[in-house]
Design a binder for these strands. Structure first.
Lengths: 244, 244
DNA sequence: TCCAAAGCAAGAGCAGTGCTCTCGAATGTG
DNA sequence: CACATTCGAGAGCACTGCTCTTGCTTTGGA
């Protein structure tokens, strides 16, 4: 049945997959801007017009690759998290962040595709939303678990942000106090600021020991959303004083 | 002199400027990927090949636009800072950050050009470095001023990061303690994470009140590098406790 | 089983791109 | 004035995304 009626359908999904694979290969090698339908078709031994039976336009192919990239990143992050699911929140947080960084460094062009400048005139369709949310959902799950246990002091929210935090918290994590929700949203964006600067070369000749730097920055980020070592109660570690 | 010998030279700089202006216009409207040499030439009433007398390739034109964008952003930030040069560090920090955000939102395509994914196969030449550093230098100047006065407690640096911080601090701000140097590097990247997420649409349907959110996040960022309100001594503001 | 319908690959073609080369004409310098 | 340099224009190459038409093959219903 699935083979009989699928003789054609199966061929279709196979060709579709082959196209995406070859496109992904070109994407990884040359980047999104140099992804050429004709080159993909050429490599697959077919003519360019035949490709339009599978993807109505170049942008549609890109959209498919975007979703795949989000899913690949999400899966990588989730897999890394699985292995330390029993550890404390700071460790889980750090492991997930480092997995995201690792994926980004291993797939810079795909990272650029999803977190870099959007292709001009291109608006990500809603179909990308679920895949795109995976990392964020994973991270906020960790934060929720952490706050289910011990609470932690966070800076008070300005009055102007209260409604925003309440609204955002309802969709995302109703059990989290507004301070944490806002802090998380910021940390979420800031995490990709750290990663983006590294992937896009902004740290060249600036930061050398990227691993150590990232580890430290991510730990601080974790503190910012209220993740603390079990024995901690305040804002983390001893301090040093500077100034005259 | 400048008019006599410049009859040709002046025409050249004028045409060069006209090309950049038109290119910038197309960049602002359609984005870098759709910037077409032929379209620029067409709009200027000349033939495309003539344009190669002024810019040897499309990438060279883009490089010129990149430097201009960095300079435009740097100047905007510096101008905003001038007006509050006498204020306290937190205010100066916030004003500069908000100026950067404002510029990014007003010039999204130019922002994408300099802080988004780099054009594939394109490596920013060293000539862009000075212009690119302006914002960072401005921000660290604020941090230095702040730490020249009162010091503030920052989390201790892990041992593995000490050498990195020392090295980076030598080039950047020898008078700053290593903790602050590292915290600043992170805050610098994180700032552009916040702005990038907003400009590139990652906050769509997530964060609504962008101004308030950014103000709050940036204040936290400032605290992270040791900027405090004069009356403050610790890690800022009262806290609220969450959890069961 | 046969036949119309649908799916598909191939080719030609259009409008556009970056870039190169050549050829006159304008312009600055001795 | 004469020479050399600079510049604009045009033709042309190789490439792109995309459309349309022409046949062939597979599919599903009578």
């Amino acid at each position: 049945m699935s083979t009989a009626r699928g003789a054609r359908a199966r061929a279709r999904t196979e060709v579709t997959a082959a196209i995406k694979d070859e496109a992904r290969r070109q994407l990884a090698k040359e980047g999104a801007a140099k992804l050429s339908l004709r080159a993909v078709a050429r490599e697959l031994g077919m003519v360019s017009s035949a490709l339009y039976r599978y993807f109505p336009s170049r942008d549609d192919l890109l959209t498919a690759l975007i979703i795949d990239a989000y899913d690949s990143l999400g899966q990588t992050a989730e897999a890394a998290h699985e292995k330390v699911a029993d550890a404390g929140p700071i460790r889980r947080w750090a492991v997930v962040c480092e997995a995201v960084r690792g994926w980004a460094l291993a797939h810079p062009h795909e990272y650029a595709l999803i977190y870099g400048s959007p292709v001009p005139g291109y608006a990500a369709p809603d179909s990308t939303v679920p895949a795109a949310s995976r990392v964020a959902l994973l991270l906020i799950e960790i934060v929720r678990d952490a706050h289910r246990g011990v609470g932690v002091a966070l800076p008070r929210l300005p009055a102007e942000l209260k409604p925003e935090a309440r609204r955002l918290g309802q969709d995302l994590a109703p059990d989290l106090p507004p301070e944490v929700v806002m802090a998380f949203a910021a940390a979420w964006a800031q995490l990709f600021g750290l990663i983006g600067f590294e992937v896009f070369g902004q740290f060249n000749r600036v930061v050398e020991d990227r691993e150590a730097f990232f580890r430290h920055a991510v730990a601080q980020l974790g503190h910012g959303v209220g993740l603390v070592f079990p024995q901690d109660t305040g804002t983390g570690g001893g301090g040093s004083r500077s100034g005259s």
